[in-house]
């Protein structure tokens, strides 16, 4: 009953909030003095509170970068933890300004749900995890016919799962939970033979299991999961700021601008770097975007460039130890490609 009440409230918020979904998010954000950012309630590497109670993760840092672009201060951001199911309503109703919650960019979300995706902060794909102690013979997802599979509802994950088993003419028993913790607990308790979600999520879930080393991620990747931040449709200015924050993070990495050397780089003679850091004479790049001209300096000071964010949260500097892989810059054989700032 309580759930229904929340649902109704959500729908009501959507309906009533005449001003919330205003078309000028930038002014609203400036008036409030902070960016309200919707993140995951707890997915290691993407957004989770650390032992000091501070939010950490790629998705969290992306919002800090936006706050730094707007305010010159990466701390002017507040986070709202959202379940997979509540996330879109929260954005549509104006409760949050950005949705940065390991959310897959799909055409349905980009159109029918009224979202605009600003970029792909992490190229992911869906995989399966099993307990190798309980299922020693299984080393491929194609052996999972007849298995019970734990999955979270309201995700692309449950759709891909259905398609994959159908395409391979296999049967399975879906065990579908609304909450992450419930799905994890059920899998750990042996209710399901396998767990499925984005591969990055599998690594995070694995660390939360009673004995992580018993669990293996199967090699198959069954879908494309481009995860990225999104905003409401109908506000091009705000969309631009979020989109170019993403490109700025990539361009900074490509130009070798890091948290440590950004002040030094301001003296660079390289025209690319001068444009990037707003040190070109009479530059209007930042102000045209609606922020200050040293916006990229502020971003990099707050969070570091894309590579630094990656390594700190999910890469070598984190317990997840995920390799850059396809998330490397295009210059290093990956897919991350920042549009030119000029």
């Amino acid at each position: 009953m309580k759930h229904i009440a929340i649902g109704i409230l959500g729908a009501a918020a959507l309906g009533f909030a005449a001003s919330a979904a205003s078309a000028d998010t930038l002014s609203d954000v400036k008036a409030k003095g902070f960016v309200q950012c919707g993140v995951n309630t707890g997915l290691a590497g993407f957004s989770a509170p650390n032992d000091k109670g501070e939010w950490t993760g790629i998705d969290v840092d992306f919002c800090r970068a936006v706050a730094a672009a707007v305010f010159g201060d990466g701390t002017k951001v507040k986070f709202t933890g959202l379940s997979a199911k509540d996330r879109f309503t929260a954005l549509q109703s104006g409760e949050i300004d950005i949705l940065s919650r390991n959310t897959t960019w799909t055409i349905n979300r980009d159109t029918a749900l009224g979202l605009n995706f600003a970029g792909v902060t992490y190229y992911d794909g869906q995989g399966f995890m099993i307990n190798s102690k309980k299922l020693p013979g299984v080393n491929s997802a194609l052996q999972l016919s007849g298995a019970a599979i734990c999955v979270q509802s309201g995700t692309t994950t449950e759709l891909n799962l259905a398609d994959y088993f159908k395409a391979n003419k296999m049967e399975y028993n879906p065990v579908v939970f609304e909450k992450f913790e419930e799905a994890n607990a059920a899998y750990d308790a042996g209710r399901c033979d396998a767990y499925t979600t984005d591969q990055s999520g599998l690594y995070a879930v694995r660390l939360q299991m009673a004995s992580p080393n018993d669990h293996v991620v199967l090699p198959e990747i069954i879908s494309k999961e481009p995860l990225g931040p999104s905003v409401r449709q109908g506000d091009d200015k705000w969309f631009d700021i979020v989109k170019w924050t993403y490109y700025a993070l990539l361009d900074a990495e490509e130009a070798g601008v890091t948290q440590a050397n950004v002040d030094e780089m301001k003296n660079s003679d390289n025209p690319d770097i001068k444009r990037l850091l707003g040190t070109e004479a009479e530059t209007k790049i930042g102000t045209d975007l609606g922020v200050s001209n040293d916006w990229v300096v502020n971003i990099v000071k707050a969070t570091g460039n894309y590579g630094e964010i990656f390594e700190r949260n999910v890469g070598s500097g984190s317990p997840l130890k995920i390799a850059r892989g396809i998330n490397a810059l295009w210059t290093k054989g990956g897919l991350q490609y920042g549009m030119p700032i000029r």
Partner: peptide, 30 residues
Amino acid sequence: SSLAVAIGYPDLYAIGGTILNQTGQAIEVV
């Protein structure tokens, strides 16, 4: 019975919630 959602029993509320999320039709589903 709508508390079913906590344990993953696919009752009206759980399935409606999934549909709400996949389609974004919050008001209609509610």
